[in-house]
Design a binder for these strands. Structure first.
Lengths: 144, 144
DNA sequence: TAGTAAACGATAATTCTTATCGTCTGTCAA
DNA sequence: TTGACAGACGATAAGAATTATCGTTTACTA
């Protein structure tokens, strides 16, 4: 069985990024965390292993991991407060390139909820679907 | 046909909030905006009609509208950067009370995408579904 | 193993949002 | 109507999250 160190080294080589001690510890700790920790929470954990690490390094490497496709952001939405004024039942199309958000009617999406109660006893109020992909503008730019 | 002023007055009475000039102009401008504007963008528009308005007032009233259920937030997610380390295909259950996020396997959700290309030519890469509702903990608290 | 590009830590700066506070206004009862 | 009072307002300071800067150190390639 390969060690996780070897795996991480290969992962970095695949993505063309340098293997540093900080980066490796960060990666391993993040992989071992459940849920969706904030950068601060990750920082707190990593600090136990590398007391001298900087919060900026944590941010920089989380972004690097996300850009490389090693991890993924939970929400594609903008960081600022965004409000919904379209009162018709609809969902969102989010462009993975330009991050633009456009609305799509529920009926046009062709997806409908089927359960009222999910495993664990979670009581469903509504579904919010982000369709992630490439918007027409970015498709055009891509093929140029 | 009722004027929009009357509508807004009734809306405020329904929600037990005062009708102020700022609030009314803000509401009307937001209703007339497309997409999902940021507070800054809304502020810029409102300023043309009420030059003396404060950005804090815009924030306070957007929150008020959201809390009252007049408008809705685009994303229920936390404002901070959150990273996904679960590599299995899954979606999220977001509690509308405590804002906690937990994972649910795609298979358990019972929802599957049916289209590859949506109206407008948007090219689908993947779906990210937020199931919004009440988590078991908050259901328990609620009934107390 | 030397040169170079990139990564690091420290910290200043920026951005977004919220809190504070003195003044003003909308609401409601008289 | 009017007067009292809670709540809303504007100005701005404060706070939280994130990013930029910069001098030093480290990893990769030849």
């Amino acid at each position: 069985m390969e060690s996780s160190a070897t795996n991480f080294r290969e992962l970095c080589q695949q993505h063309g990024i340098a293997v540093t001690h900080q980066r490796q510890v960060l990666f391993e700790i993040m992989q071992g965390m459940h849920g969706h920790p904030s950068p601060e929470e990750v920082y707190a954990r990593v600090k136990k292993k590398i007391p001298a690490i900087s919060l900026a390094t944590v941010y920089k490497n989380i972004h690097l991991f996300v850009e490389s496709g090693i991890f993924r952001e939970v929400s594609m939405h903008h960081g600022t407060l965004r409000v919904e004024m379209n009162s018709r039942p609809h969902h969102h199309m989010v462009c993975s390139m330009c991050k633009s958000i456009s609305d799509i009617d529920e009926a046009d999406l062709g997806l409908l909820p089927s359960h009222q109660k999910l495993p664990g006893g979670f009581l469903v109020e509504r579904y919010a679907v982000d369709v992630i992909g490439i918007c027409p503008d970015c498709q055009a730019k891509k093929s140029n």
